[in-house]
Amino acid sequence: MIMAPIADVSSRVNHTDSWRIQKPIIDYSKCIRCMICWKFCPDACIDVVDGGAIAAPSERTLKMEAPVIDMDYCKGCGICANECPEKCIEMVLDEKGED
């Protein structure tokens, strides 16, 4: 017997990209794949992807899994850029609303 309403639809249906005024851009040629950005994202929207990036600081790094931001959910808070030890994430104005 169910006595209360049950929410069973993942919040993934709710794209939060329209919340963004700035967006993070990762410079993969400097990214050492430490995953610190992934660790601190409050929206859990940085995926860990095998061979997801084309550039890397070294041959060895190129073979490692890379952080790839899911732009359907990123709210542009900037924590990833602030915490990145290599300073290779840049926050830029997201102009999607302007066209």
């Binding site: 993942s10 919040s11 709710n14 794209h15 794949r33 430490c34 859990a44 359907d72 808070c77």
Partner: peptide, 26 residues
């Protein structure tokens, strides 16, 4: 990269917390 915390996510994106919410990370 060996992860310093478990990789499995039990909290999904698309939630409605403010930008940069610390309670969400908690």
């Amino acid at each position: 990269m060996p992860f310093s915390i478990p990789e499995e996510e039990l909290m999904e994106p698309g939630h409605t917390a403010c930008h940069g919410c610390g309670a969400t990370l908690a």
